[in-house]
Amino acid sequence: MTRINGEPINLVISGVGGQGNILLSRLIGRSLLKKGYLVSIGETLGVAQRGGAVMSNIRISEKMPFGPLTPEGKAHLIVSLEPLETLRMLSRYGNPEVTTLTNFRPTLTVDVLTRKDKYPDYAALKQAIDTLSGTAFFLDATAMALKLGNPIITNVIMMGALIGLDMIPLTREDIEAEIKASFSADRAELNLTALAHGIDAIAAGT
């Protein structure tokens, strides 16, 4: 995982306010810190939480604490809970080598609801994400979460998929331990199941 020039790993997590990307960045941050990495997380909070576009910049280094924002065009990995938000992050942080992992479950914007805007054609959007990514993974984590009985765990399924990609220095066990430490027993159970489903989805080839 060490990079040339001691450069950090830049992970971007994006989505829509209320989808729970902050939980992901916190779980990842805490687990990485325990393993001795220097992590900086930059986050959107405040007004964007009311249904706006939100993102977390997670910068993982062995050398020094970096600032909480990634330079333009320098993401290694973009994990997005919503496809339009993958594209938004690609436009800022994308590059020909970037890996993207997208929950392909569009959340319409208010302007689409009120018919001022049109949500992009799904196939075209997928195509664009694919073209702009070095490697693009898609899954419908929301559908998987609904099957498990609760849309709220979509984010943890995505966390599983992220672990499945094996691109950040965290193992399944690391995240499992963090989940057990952060939730009550029954909620931990549900989240562990969600995590496993995400990991399996990647193993099964998405």
């Binding site: 964007a48 690609l90 914007t109 208010v110 992009p120 054609d121």
Partner: peptide, 23 residues
């Protein structure tokens, strides 16, 4: 920041597909 070719692909995608997400 990025090679011109990639930059071009980005701006096409942004123009055609990216819409704003208001609060």
């Amino acid at each position: 920041i990025r090679e011109a070719d990639y930059e071009r692909k980005i701006s096409t995608a942004v123009d055609k597909l990216l819409i704003n997400r208001g609060v």
